[in-house]
């Protein structure tokens, strides 16, 4: 199953990446090699995993000790490229 440039373009759009035209072929070739390598797992039989017992379960912590709204906003927004009145500023969405 050869990966072609069109597929790379599609995946790139999903990943919100822009790939230069000149790089598409090289990337498709790399991709092909990697997919061929990982594809080997499709032939492996999983067998019975009903006995799998995770020791740790993801637990949500209680939402207590709430901090004062706005306490960390300045520090967090300091990293943003563009802000206005405490909001992240971006190009028009609609």
């Amino acid at each position: 199953m050869a990966i072609d440039s069109e597929q790379i373009k599609k995946v790139a759009h999903l990943a919100r990446l822009h790939i230069d035209e000149g790089e598409l072929d090289g990337l498709a070739k790399d991709f092909d090699a990697i997919i061929n390598y990982i594809d080997q797992i499709t032939a492996v039989d999983v067998g019975d995993i009903s006995g799998f017992q995770p020791r740790v379960n993801n637990v949500m912590r209680e939402d207590d000790n709430a901090y004062e709204s706005g306490e960390f906003s300045d520090a967090i927004l300091a990293n943003a490229p563009d802000t206005k009145d405490g909001y992240l500023k971006v190009k028009k969405v609609l």
Binding site: Q7, A15, R16, F31
Partner: peptide, 29 residues
């Protein structure tokens, strides 16, 4: 970029190196 999605694409393509982009693409795939 021209619009928001274009900004995402341009920012990410500029900010990430080749290997990172390759793995993101692989993961997305």
């Amino acid at each position: 970029g021209e619009d928001l999605i274009d900004t995402y694409k341009k920012s990410r393509s500029k900010g990430f190196g080749k290997e990172v982009q390759r793995r993101i693409l692989l993961g997305t795939y």
